[in-house]
């Protein structure tokens, strides 16, 4: 197996009023092709920040990010084929779909931008692939349920046939029963589209269900690497405990 994504000594900081706030420092990991890699940790540990850097949405990082042999450069937007190869499903399906565009437009526009033909048919296929009726194409996002919206968001991410799909807590805004449906859909799509996933989550159940390997993050650093066996034994408490580790004043409570 070849390495699909490798991240070395990634540090990300945000400028604040007086000092630079370092959200992530010295993160190194690699993801093998076809695997689901978990970035696990309590809220505020920097896992989403890492994901946004890989997605090219935050370009203020230092270190090295290599995706399918293409090196990303800090301070520059991702373009060309690499842009198509990296797609993302956002955490909140209520804010990631444009509220004034119909579903047909949301799914059709990326294809149009890339000069595809037969867009209406492609939109129907894309909806069908995520288990939605093509008749929904004429609706606005607010006319869909949360689960349906997240399916639309997944359909959009898959339109350009990416090799790497970034999942930012894709089910945390959804109902428990819908969560399982979305996760199973993602697993099926991964198998049929030969994709690599990077999944961000703080939910031990989701991680155990989805991931092949992962790292547990805490305070912007990698606390420990987890293999398949360790992942399935991961508990909610262990994820939470990572938040208290190294936090002055909380130890020993």
């Amino acid at each position: 197996m070849t390495s699909a994504v490798s991240v070395e000594q990634l540090s990300i900081s945000f400028p604040s009023a007086k000092t630079r706030f370092t959200a992530v420092s010295d993160v190194t990991f690699s993801v093998e092709e076809g695997q689901t890699f978990g970035l696990i940790g309590p809220s505020g540990c920097g896992k989403t920040t890492v994901l946004r850097a890989i997605a090219g949405l935050n370009t203020g990082w230092t270190g090295l990010i290599d995706i399918f042999g293409a090196k990303l450069e800090p301070g520059r937007k991702i373009t060309g084929d690499t842009r198509r190869n990296i797609q993302m499903v956002f955490q909140d399906p209520y804010s990631s779909l444009h509220p004034r565009h119909r579903i047909a437009h949301i799914l059709g526009e990326p294809l149009k931008v890339h000069g595809a033909e037969g867009i209406d048919a492609a939109v129907g296929i894309a909806l069908d692939r995520v288990g939605l009726s093509p008749a929904l194409a004429g609706r606005y996002p607010h006319q869909l349920s949360g689960g349906q919206r997240q399916r639309v968001a997944i359909a959009r991410a898959l339109l350009l046939k990416p090799k790497l799909l970034l999942l930012d807590e894709p089910t945390s805004a959804l109902d428990v029963t819908v969560q399982a449906e979305i996760l199973n859909l993602l697993n099926d799509l991964k198998a049929s589209h030969r994709m690599t996933f990077i999944l961000v989550s703080h939910d031990a159940g989701v991680i155990g269900h989805m991931c092949d390997r992962g790292v547990l993050m805490s305070h912007g650093r990698i606390a420990r690497a987890l293999d398949r066996a360790a992942l399935s034994e991961l508990t909610e408490d262990a994820v939470e405990a990572a938040a208290w580790d190294e936090t002055p004043g909380y130890r020993g409570n």
Binding site: G56, L57, Q87, F90, Q91, S95, S96, L97, E109, A157
Partner: peptide, 11 residues
Amino acid sequence: DYLAAAEMVGI
């Protein structure tokens, strides 16, 4: 997120 999503698909 809408604009981040649009940017990711190349718009």
